[in-house]
Design a binder for these strands. Structure first.
Length: 422
RNA sequence: GGAGGGGUGGCUGAGCGGUUGAAAGCGCCAGUCUUGAAAACUGGUGGGUCCGCAAGGGCCUCGCGAGUUCGAAUCUCGCCCCCUCCA
């Protein structure tokens, strides 16, 4: 969330920013008004508390000098003050809670470099694969190869679940290991294997709750959520912690399954493996010094791009416009891989700088070289989301005979297999 | 699930109703000493928030929440987490 002080000092900028992100629930004026009210109340409550504290110390002094001294008058006075502020204290707590809730619906400020109108293609790598036959969509390729079983997936769990068999399952596993190894060995990330179920505090910390709560799988009985991305547990690693400036940046990479209800998602664009309730993803998360987060966003994005390049997949990098960005992000690049069978671009990675927006909720701070405690900046990016990467591989590397060539970089992870055949 | 033990500052660990935001040690920072370093010695060293131009001051904070009290790290109740033993 944003700093209340910042909101109150820049209400117009915050409003304009929220409007740009289509956040109609951001009630900026109300925040400013409530904050004023709260400060007044706080002052009066604190003054009363001071009086009570002074009287208590008086009594302590008197009792020490003479245990039998009569302090009933002072006790009565203090009690009266206490009774008097009881209501104000309750009001203040209610105000604070309301203020906090309101602030949770105000989105992060976007960076000046973010376009307002439409997404901007920043770069394109590779070229569209050429076929002397009509390229098939991945669900046909997968079915014919016997590695993708949509009917049984539906039997087990319902629509939009994935069931991979044989080489399909192996391909999934190979990709996970390939991506993790790349980020760990070449890009300097530390591997994390976190819980896939987290509590409400963690979901609030990274901002999925309250805004996206309906899109999350929840175990009511235990008040636990299935993670929608590794971002949640990994970014929460340092919740309520003060790091040291010399350990920044902290870079983690993490494989997890991800669970999303995709409530209200249209059947359009959901065919096959495009949008499923449970999918694998390798995520990168960074905690950085505020002065360094913008350059760290660039390297994070390049780290994700390298996965696509090593796999030889044609992709483009999009700089998202204000309207397409997430609630918590200050700047986001999307990486889209080309899927010839579907004849469209598929989002395989989203790399964002959240500046101090998450860190403030998480209370993840660091002690700077000047001794001051400040909020870190948090970043994350997919490196990559698996199912759509698999789509891209199947559709780009398909052959006329229905087989699929395995990208060179992946072969050692598949026991040397170079072609998937029936 | 049952029975115990425990959650205190960066760490170890005292405190168990009163000037305790919290002893002591370690660590860290600064200074003295030294050619330099180490050792020794001296001093400093949590976070949040509010008022204030500042200096400074107030309030909150000893797992979380409620309560008792003039006053709670200390007492009571509920919850969470960790450890040990039993099933």
């Amino acid at each position: 969330m944003l700093d209340v002080k910042f909101i109150c000092e820049n209400p117009d900028a915050v409003k304009k920013n929220a409007a740009g992100k289509n956040e109609r629930r951001a009630e900026v004026d109300k925040v400013v008004a409530l904050n004023e009210q709260k400060k007044k109340l706080q002052l009066s409550v604190e003054e009363a508390r001071t009086k009570i504290n002074v009287i208590s110390k008086d009594i302590a002094g008197l009792k020490k000098a003479d245990p039998k001294s009569d302090v009933s008058a002072k006790q009565a006075e203090s009690r009266a003050i206490g009774d008097g502020i009881k209501k104000s204290e309750e009001d203040m707590k209610a105000l604070e809670k309301e203020l906090d809730t309101l602030c949770m619906w105000i989105p992060n400020m976007v960076h000046a470099s973010v376009p307002v109108k439409s997404n901007r293609t920043e770069k394109t790598w590779g070229e569209k694969a050429k076929f002397d036959f009509k390229p098939k969509p991945h669900w046909e390729i997968g079915k014919e190869l016997g590695i993708l079983d949509e009917e049984r997936a539906a039997k087990l769990s319902g629509s939009n679940f994935l069931l991979l068999m044989g080489a399909g399952a192996a391909l999934e596993r190979a990709l996970i290991n390939f991506m993790l190894d790349l980020h760990i060995r070449m890009h300097g990330y530390k591997e994390v294997w976190p819980p896939f179920l987290v509590n409400r505090d963690s979901m609030i910390g990274t901002g999925q709750v309250p805004k996206m709560e309906d899109d999350m799988y929840k175990c009511e009985k235990d008040e636990l959520f299935l993670i929608p991305t590794a971002e949640v547990p990994v970014t929460n690693l340092h919740r309520d912690e003060i790091l040291s400036h010399d350990q920044l940046p902290v870079c983690y990479t993490s494989y997890t399954a991800c669970f999303r209800r995709e409530a209200g998602a249209y059947s359009k664009d959901t065919r096959g493996m495009q949008r499923i309730h449970q999918f694998d993803k390798v995520e990168m998360v960074k905690f950085t010094h505020p002065d360094k987060s913008w350059e760290e966003l660039e390297t994070l994005t390049v780290n994700a791009e390298e996965v696509l390049e090593k796999l030889g997949l044609h992709y483009r990098r999009l700089l998202l416009s204000t309207g397409d960005m997430s609630f918590s992000s200050a700047k986001t690049y999307d990486l889209e891989a080309w899927a010839p069978g579907l004849d469209k671009w598929l989002e395989v990675s989203s790399c964002s700088n959240f500046t101090d927006f998450q860190a403030r909720r998480l209370k993840t701070r660091f002690r700077d070289a000047d001794g001051k405690v400040k909020h870190v900046h948090t970043l994350n990016g997919s490196g990559l989301a698996l199912p759509r990467t698999v789509i891209a591989i199947l559709e780009n590397y398909q052959q006329a005979d229905g087989s699929v060539v395995i990208p060179e970089a992946l072969r050692s992870y598949l026991g040397g297999v170079s072609v998937l055949k029936k």
